[in-house]
Design a protein around this nucleic acid. Sequence first.
DNA 1: CCAACAAATGAGATCGATCTCATTATTTCA
DNA 2: TGAAATAATGAGATCGATCTCATTTGTTGG
Lengths: 340, 340
Amino acid sequence: MADLLSVAKLAGVSRATAARAFSSPDLVRPATRERVLNAAQQLAFRPNKIAQQLRSQATQMIGVMVPSLDNPVFAEQLQAMEVAARAAGYSLIVTTSEYSPSREGDIVEEMLRQRVDGLVLTVAEADNSAVLVKLSLETTPCLLVYNPPGNSGFPSIGVDNRAASADATRHLITLGHERIGMVAGPLLQSDRARQRFDGYCHAMDEAGLIAHPLVEMARHTQADLKSLTPALQGPDALSAVVCTNDLLAISLMGELQRAGFNVPSDLSVMGFDGIALGKHLYPSLCTIEQPRADIGRTAVHTLLAMIRGEECTPDPLPHALRKGESVGTPTSRKSTLSTS
Amino acid sequence: MADLLSVAKLAGVSRATAARAFSSPDLVRPATRERVLNAAQQLAFRPNKIAQQLRSQATQMIGVMVPSLDNPVFAEQLQAMEVAARAAGYSLIVTTSEYSPSREGDIVEEMLRQRVDGLVLTVAEADNSAVLVKLSLETTPCLLVYNPPGNSGFPSIGVDNRAASADATRHLITLGHERIGMVAGPLLQSDRARQRFDGYCHAMDEAGLIAHPLVEMARHTQADLKSLTPALQGPDALSAVVCTNDLLAISLMGELQRAGFNVPSDLSVMGFDGIALGKHLYPSLCTIEQPRADIGRTAVHTLLAMIRGEECTPDPLPHALRKGESVGTPTSRKSTLSTS
DNA sequence: CCAACAAATGAGATCGATCTCATTATTTCA
DNA sequence: TGAAATAATGAGATCGATCTCATTTGTTGG
């Protein structure tokens, strides 16, 4: 409501002096400063960020786009980003794309119009992304999260999906599993999912095992048992699966148990992401833990560095294997049960 | 980069005409409009929202504050809000308070400086909230979500927590449970939790059963079995519990099962919130479903109405009982097992 | 007590879009 | 064709804070 001018008037000084009383208090005589501060108090003056932003050509705002907040992976990352951003005096504009390219385009355009100081994006496909091509022509700093760097030309924060997925697979192999499958959402729609499949194949190969064809679920984060059951029957029935994300793994465990399968004795289930909830389930979810909070924090700090004009080529963050009760050693009775 | 002035120059018109070519195209001769649009194209002109906001004294931005995005309840609500807001041409500034009053204060102050058109808040305590007192002196429209309206004076979107909790309890009673407890986070710290306890007591009373003292967990969203075990032993052992939120219920189920208890045969566990994941667990979580997406959408639409200057006194939204495998009929063998 | 210098303050422009009001260009109809 | 009407455009102010540069006030030393 009250602007600097009214404060200045009430204090009997010019706008310039009033402004200085706030931004560089030592440039103004103590007595004057006092008067200005008093006037501001009386008028309930509240600095107008819009005006400051226009004047300073900087908004202290970061535009964030994630696919969906219904997936805790993104929500938890965002939580960390918000804390880190606020600590640095920045605010977040948060948007969700649902992986829709047209929505991605609209959102980014909108944020550029808002003159955000930088962007943190998670896109469906970092390569061949229309929105990234567009952004490469702009000067606004932009950072990818979770997306593999690929050839998009943008710095990226996240784990090495291929290596992580290979580690997950090796964990199962080490326990004695040989018939291991991978369960994913439809069409391996995200670049991450593809890398994770890659890592799985690699680890299988390396151990002299044959990688099974991908088991595709109709939805990205919800398992339907029907797509999987064929692979659970017969002499070659799988004894373990790696899922491309935790939600998929958790819902798969639920479906399996509901159908009378035991996890892990009939089928070991491994997740990927490391959402917090997985630890508290029974059986607890064995998964690859992406350092989600660290990813969020690092994303913010890296972007701030880019905004300051520094060159950034962040390294992949370390993933970790989180052991859990959803994975066990292969049992022989399995084949009996799974054919029932 | 390029501003309207440069576009105007290139098109050989005044700023005013250039502006009109965008905001009211029919006020400008087609040929002229064409020239302006071409010039804009060439210069990659992108309207500056900051300037528009300063001029129009409206930001088309909504400030959102939730306790934490680590809890899917808030994340899922936010997801719906974002979609609704974007559809209406609004953006969201998202912040998390961790229920800290000082953080709440800072955040709101910051958003007011940013001149958001309205606020959607979920606070720890709607009554006695410093930040709400402050806001009641401001003109910025403000709406509470999940917080019971109480005497804060602000409109509120959410379910009737007391009634919903009573319904949850009655569901257990109908199934034959008599020794029903309630499990909550520390100190009944949120106003919602208190109402839910109220509803529980009411339903127990109504059925002629004695409400047990609240079982308090050390953390708001994570159960530790030790606090509960005393209540699970002896002849008066509980046969069912209602948890004040789903995360608590899910982790409690995990702990119980890990300790050798069976859910629901040893203890029926009921949640509250209805987060999406609960459906896919095994046993699936029986819970009170708050219409989270609807809450988010309604919050946005109600706030927009308030911004337009309409008076709003939203009704509570309907909750629903979501049946699930985590709740069953009481069994007699329970007491045997629970004392083991 | 005044010159020389430093400290404090003010006037005015600026950021980019848009609104009002005045002015000029174009129609329309007698 | 000319007057009255309407359509199209431009000049300048405005939103609120801040920066530059000029000016005034205050301080120090000779």
